[in-house]
Every structure is written in C-alpha cells, then in structure tokens.
Amino acid sequence: MIPKAHATVTELALTPIIGHAMLRLVRLDAAQHPGLPPPGRAVDSAGCRIRWVEPGHWLATGQPAALAAIAVDVDLARFDVSGSLTGMAVIGEGWRELLMIGGVFDAEARTFGPGCIARTIMHHTPLLIDCIGDDRVEAWVPPSHAAEFFDFWHNTVARRGRRLSAPLP
C-alpha cells in the first residue's frame, strides 16, 4: 500500500502499554527455532505476542500466566526481562510519519506492515517497532530512555507539523 502522503502526526494518539510481563526466549545454538516467528516478524500466540528481535532471540509479551505456558525445550532458554523495556502504542494513520522524524528507518516502505518488526535508533534511543496494524504500532524502549523519548514524541505530535507534500504551485 502506498503510504498516504497527507497523513500528519497530529492525528496520532500515544498510549502507554502497561501490565505486560516480558520474556526473552533464546536458542542455545543461535539458530531459528521451529514454531517461533522468522526474522523481522511477530505473531500472536495463545495470549502472547512473540517477536523476533535478533538471530536466535525472541521477545514475548503478555500476561504472566500466558507467558508461563510457553513451552521451552532443551534448545531454548527463558529469561525474565519484564523490567527491560517500556512500551508505547501509537494509534493513528500518521504513525509512519512519526517514525520518520528523528530516525533512520524506512517506516514508509510498503513492505513494512502488520506483523513486521524492526529494531532501530531514533532520537539517540534504541527502539523496537512492532507493526500491529495499518493504524497501530507499538514502540518499545529501555525504561531509562522512556521519559526523554516519549517526551520527544509528544512534542512532535503536539507541534502542528507542516504537510510534507507541498501544495501545488
């Protein structure tokens, strides 16, 4: 889908994600694990959302009971990382525009859509982007960066940005 050229960041809502536990699942041999999403992808499974984050590493979020039910085997190690990331849901069609400001990732690419994962740097902050739907994306950052980073986003959304497609001459 060609991104709408006229969607602006002022049409966005930013909502903190709270109440989720978080697990890191890691293959002991750094290989792809059957049943877990391939590179760059995320899946919903039994009350959890499981995201590929790097070769042999997946991040699962959800209610503690659902995470506890995730089966592991001799090849997979579980790490409780609930305190490692803080999440923010970005709701609205202008999320692609927001992700282009202060960043280096092509959030406007037609191929980056629902179910896609990206890890990038934005405004000096390491960021995990999870595209949930056409009008929703979740952003996860280390808690120490969260105040500064989400303040940057709130300011960007609050300031009435200029339409990025200039009016015709």
Partner: peptide
Amino acid sequence: VRGVLAPHMRVAIVEVQEHWA
C-alpha cells in the same frame, strides 16, 4: 566472543541492565 570465538557453545546471553535495578 559468542559469535566468533565460541559459535559451537550451547549458551544464551541476554543483557539485563535495565531489567534489574
């Protein structure tokens, strides 16, 4: 070390700097 010196090892390493206060 994991990827170059010890690719054969069965080990998982996760950075947990902010998970643990």
